[in-house]
Amino acid sequence: MSLFSDSFVSTPVIRPDADVLLEIRGLHARVEDKAILKGVDLTLRAGEIHAVMGRNGSGKSTLSKVLAGHPAYTVTAGTVTYRGQNLLELSPEQRARVGVFLGFQYPVEIPGVSNLEFLRVATNARRAELGQEELDTFAFEDLVRERLTVVQMDPAFLDRSVNEGFSGGEKKRNEILQMALLEPLVAILDETDSGLDIDALRIVAAGVSQLATADTATLLITHYQRLLEAITPDFVHVMAAGRILRTGGRELALELEERGYDWVDQELASLELG
């Protein structure tokens, strides 16, 4: 039995006529021999911001990596459709090129590869997919300096190796900068708020909000409600044991913050017993 009143179990629809960008149905996935996702259903429409919350180990990050095509994860059942296309058939780079972006919880440091040139190559890969002209060094510098303002990032970070020696906050800003350059239609942000101080969180959240438009969908994966104070989600999903257990509005996040996740365990147990 739910600890929440029925008012929390609402499924508001913001624009029922908006295009479905991403549709996940019955998604099961495992890493090595361990099943992690056990039937995830989720629909993201244009203009929507979704938040997925849950305990450690609930499958939130796995969901993000499976959507981005991480080779360590194997999809064993279910479908993921991105704008009518089977996303699971695409390689990780193809997914990025068609407009699916994963903001990493732990952005990877790559010593020796210039951040500026990395961003340029990535941006041009996306532009080529969109049929846009490739940007040369100079045109790209103009673009990147404009987009730096989204995350108030010091241009000096462009001259360094990708994420090398960046603080946690700088890495997350660099992720959002990439998002600003790649202009994805579906952005999946995995624990974007982790490791951020209040100021950095505010800047990153403002950047994400600025990039979320009526044509895009955003999937925020987070432990805490504090990110959702800065970015108002249209839907909040509670994930447990590899599936979405509950869906609600922002109130659900507030309730989680106040009462913790124990009720989730109880509800999960009652479901399993039932």
Binding site: P71, S91, E93, A96, F104, V108, F118, V121, A125, L182
Partner: peptide, 10 residues
């Protein structure tokens, strides 16, 4: 994977 996830071929 990080590079691929930004559209860079394997």
């Amino acid at each position: 994977f990080y590079l691929q996830s930004r559209g860079i071929a394997a």
